[in-house]
Design a protein around this nucleic acid. Sequence first.
DNA 1: CTGAAAGCGCTTACAG
DNA 2: CTGAAAGCGCTTACAG
Lengths: 330, 330
Amino acid sequence: MTLRDVAEEAGVSVTTVSYVLSGRADRATGMPVETRERVAAAAERLGYTANTAARVLRRQRTELIALAYAPPVSPWLDQLTAQCEDLAAERGYSVIGLPIRRPERAAHSLRVLERGYVDGAIIVSLPPDIDVNHYARTTRGLVVFHEHLSVPRVDVVRAHERAGMAAATRYLIEQGRRRIAYLAHAAPVDLSPGERYAGYRDAFAEAGRPVPDELVRTGADDRAGAVVAVRSLLDHPDPPDALVSESDRGALAALQAAADRGIKVPDDFAVVGAGNTSEGLFASPPLTSVGSDQLEFRPLVEALFARIEDPDRPAQEIVMPWRLHHRSSA
Amino acid sequence: MTLRDVAEEAGVSVTTVSYVLSGRADRATGMPVETRERVAAAAERLGYTANTAARVLRRQRTELIALAYAPPVSPWLDQLTAQCEDLAAERGYSVIGLPIRRPERAAHSLRVLERGYVDGAIIVSLPPDIDVNHYARTTRGLVVFHEHLSVPRVDVVRAHERAGMAAATRYLIEQGRRRIAYLAHAAPVDLSPGERYAGYRDAFAEAGRPVPDELVRTGADDRAGAVVAVRSLLDHPDPPDALVSESDRGALAALQAAADRGIKVPDDFAVVGAGNTSEGLFASPPLTSVGSDQLEFRPLVEALFARIEDPDRPAQEIVMPWRLHHRSSA
DNA sequence: CTGAAAGCGCTTACAG
DNA sequence: CTGAAAGCGCTTACAG
């Protein structure tokens, strides 16, 4: 079922069919209504669908953008996805998800970018050892969540996670907490490896206190793993009286583990999460969390489309700063 | 940067370059090592990447499969995604995610299938009012999670959710629970609309008892919403002594809401989830849940690739039956 | 062993 | 107002 079939059915040339079905308004406008209707009817009758590969080859546009992320997924990503879709739909674009796996397979996952399947991509989690420039060659627009990256035709989103995490930890120190534990992600593919943990350490350095290495655990990316990790912390001979987690997911698990043991939060055990997700709002007690103020992603999606239009525009830096949102868990 | 550039650089024809870089082994094999190396070196030097649109147009294969799902996402989907990726990679395929939105926008989301961007798709959540046949025309392989659907060239996965849900509810009835509440998904895009709820009702019908409509709430797809819904249930003048949730997520929220109120689970309030996710295992108490025994998706991924190879093979029905997994929450 | 050429199905500048 | 033709960049049957 091709353009040619429709042309024959309607008794016109493929040129005319193309103009009517996908062509420019300025061309179709000058055409008699009768012709347009005849073509439209023929296409309808035959159930014609344009061949995307041919169109892409000709126009050099796939009208697809990708959202590259490392599982496990979160409500935050659902939010970003939904907003991307709305803004993409306005431009006739569709959004696809691109799960990026453990670092050794990351390059394989990114083949979708490498092969030019999409016009643009928002890379939420840039695996370590991946050269963004490589993908910029085949993908017109690239927006990357990264704290330091600075590359000519690539726009970046900075969260200032390290400063945010330091503020969260400092808050606990100033409260007089003696034993402040840390729950890191276990999966090595991460938004900005080590940034958050560095912030935690910064606060100790600033206060002239040693980092309690024996209270640092992994598992924040998986609720089940986090529960296990927090239980082991609470079993420590000199247990923590506070916990900073790299995710709200991990912090929620900590609240659960504390409740199981009958430990009072925040009095005997303060908990701070990261991400400021809506899930934290409804925990009990509501979760204190460090994260972006609001989930408004429009600026970065618009930066992406602007770059797809004009690859030579200057690289843009979008700041979505983390700050501490005080609720009742700390 | 095209095949022609590489051909010139290496001093051979595009035919030869094509054979060396992507062509069939039987052709490249007969070629002198020297030629092959010269071509490979030229491609390397120029940083050649094949144009995907051109290749797709020629070969009629995109080497992409999609996983179409309705957010919010879950660990179950992460699991399916990871297994798909492993099996796809073996065949040189990549996997993309296709988030499907609320029903009125579903058709737009599915344009990626309609336009033939992928060779095959696994549709985890088929929105109501969507005609699968339409997408079968542009997508060679289609595997759909659906309880009833039966369409010529489409393979289906049946979970027998209704029977599973009835078994879960029956278990509570036989335990002597008097007031069995129900927590449904709020999002209307769902795996199999109404199936689970129908199972809940079946158990009552079977026991000759009326369904307690006043104890049916929505919110199972969102932890925050679920907490609110369960609180309102517990505030009911004649509160429930048990709850069946359409998701483990909702059941986990119920455990939390019960703990907040100091209600003993399962003695005063039994909770059963659905999905049998790993998260439920580490809840306190560990969550009783109805769902598939194991998360082994290989059969359905293989069915998908088999159909991509041979679109005329008979439609296959893959059963991953739900059953009740007894743990401590009910 | 290697290459010239056809063709996948579109879009669009150009001619009439 | 409409169409013939070029060309996007590959793959591959065929010829030599």
